[in-house]
Design a protein around this nucleic acid. Structure first.
Length: 432
RNA sequence: GGAGAGAUGGCCGAGUGGUCGAAGGCGCCUGACUCGAAAUCAGGUUUGCCCGUAAGGGCAACGGGGGUUCGAAUCCCUCUCUCUCCGCCA
């Protein structure tokens, strides 16, 4: 077990346990859990203090033995004494280690505290709609679902995907594959040029500690695909490698905020989602995403969340897709998040909005877990950065939205103007 | 997959059992000198944790873990990572 910084700010838990408990209660954490944290912290501090004291004694005696040996004096008695101290120390260190491990385990399983600006509530029914952009398209016919359209056009093939990989996979064919690729390039170009993000292309396989840094482990192992007996995990999102890019680093203040965008495939086992979205491309084991990640100074992070969210929104706007922005309530937020905006795109076949992007401020939660700090200009102690990320956007779901929103009576699909340069000028997808 | 080499502070690089958290150099910061700068000189320059209102005190860290010892950067075991060569491969 490392001696590095822990997840939530321990000092905050020590000094304001009631306030922490109130915040965590909003995420459904029982008060007893916070009490356990406080108790195990006290036990750990007691053990560490006693063992440090004994170590100081041992160091002192050993030093004296060295000096006496040099002087040619007898040291047997002193050596025996230190041996004895060593024995006692072994026990004490064991105690200290055990209480630290307990504390660490509790801390790793404790979620982030919601920001005060986040509404109360246990589930999505309490999410707050912030705005709606655009209007749902009107059709003179009954709009079809994306999978029906895609199969009819010959650009999506679920049956053949199942032959090799089973359920929750798809094969893109022809214009379908080209559309996916066009969207990736379009999004990356938009974010790198108009919004100032630096493109990175990270590994898709990561070690467990990287997932611990972002908060996916230890609690959500079942959502992940394990490779090579657990030596690696397939990334569930680019958030994992890109947030861990600066793990264990002390950054300069000047370049903050640092903004990255990354295109990667994402792999999710979707355990526990049996029966949900079984048709179509909404929920797949493998999908593509362009992710936005920021490292920010603490005092700027909420302003950066607004920017990041509107950067993601600008993709939807450029594509002319009607969407709304929703603030997730405390109980509906992810484990690591302090505040999350979901962007939901209109899907005509379902006659409702569906998530296409999730933009979060993690404050210093991930930074503590991954040990990412910056040094304030002009010196001073390193401080934890705030990390943020958001989808900009989930590519597969964007294809879904385009197919459904741009469908014509004959089943063809109009390609949104900004994508055409990325598809050799093609403006319409028709049956092959 | 086979054979070998290595991992020390922001960087380079010493150190093979006893005030070594670690020489020296570079870089950086402060002061002196200067009209200013350069050069030069002097001083400073890791991080985490515990105790303390503070001043301050203590513990830990030389890739990770374990062992030997009164005492480990130094000896032993093990894991990870990096590099070189061979094979294979996009």
């Amino acid at each position: 077990m490392g001696t590095g910084p822990l997840m939530l700010d321990l000092n905050r838990i020590r000094n304001q346990p009631e306030e922490v408990a109130r915040g965590l209660a909003r995420k459904g954490v029982p008060a007893e859990a916070v009490e356990r944290l406080v108790a195990s912290d006290a036990a750990w501090r007691k053990a560490i203090a006693e063992s440090d004291r004994l170590k100081a004694l041992r160091n002192d005696l050993s030093r004296k033995i060295g000096a006496r040996k040099k002087a040619g004096e007898e040291t047997e008695a002193a050596q025996a004494e230190v041996r004895e101290i060593g024995e006692r120390l072994k026990q004490l260190e064991q105690e200290a280690l055990e209480s630290e491990q307990l504390l660490r385990r509790l801390m790793l399983e404790t979620p982030n505290i919601p920001s005060p600006s986040v509404p109360d509530g246990p589930d999505e029914s309490c999410n707050r709609v912030e705005k709606v952009w655009g209007v749902p398209p009107s059709f003179s016919f009954e709009p079809k679902a994306h999978d029906e359209l895609g199969v009819a056009l010959g650009i999506l093939d679920f049956e053949r995907a199942a032959k090799m990989s089973g359920a929750r996979f798809v094969v893109y064919v022809g214009a379908g594959a080209a559309l996916e690729r066009a969207l990736i390039s379009f999004m990356l170009d938009l974010h790198t040029t108009a919004h100032g993000y630096t493109e990175v292309l990270p590994p898709y396989l990561v070690k467990a500690h990287a997932l611990e840094g972002t908060g996916n482990l230890p609690k959500f192992e079942a959502d992940l695909f394990k490779v090579d007996g657990g030596a690696f995990y397939l990334i569930p999102t680019a958030e994992v490698p890109v947030t861990n890019l600066h793990r264990d680093e002390i950054l300069e203040e000047k370049p903050l905020p640092i903004s990255y965008c990354a295109f990667t495939p994402c792999f999710r086992s979707e355990a526990g989602s049996y029966g949900k979205d079984t048709k179509g491309m909404i929920r797949q084991h493998q999908f593509h995403k362009v992710e936005l990640v920021k490292y920010s100074k603490p005092e700027d992070s909420y302003q950066e969340l607004e920017k990041l969210t509107s950067d993601a929104e600008s993709v939807l706007e450029a594509l002319g897709l009607c969407y709304r922005r929703v603030t997730l309530c405390a109980g509906d937020m992810s484990f690591s998040s302090a505040k999350t905006y979901d962007l939901e795109v209109w899907l005509p076949s379902q006659k409702r909005f569906r998530e296409i992007s999730s933009c979060s401020n993690f404050e210093d939660f991930q930074a503590r877990r991954a040990n990412i700090r910056y040094r304030p200009e002009g010196g001073g102690k390193p401080r934890f950065v705030h990390t943020l990320n958001g989808s900009g956007l989930a590519v597969g779901r964007t294809v879904v939205a385009i197919l459904e929103n741009y469908q014509q009576a004959d089943g063809s699909i109009v390609i949104p103007e900004p994508l055409r340069p990325y598809m050799r000028g093609q403006a319409l997808i028709t049956a092959r």
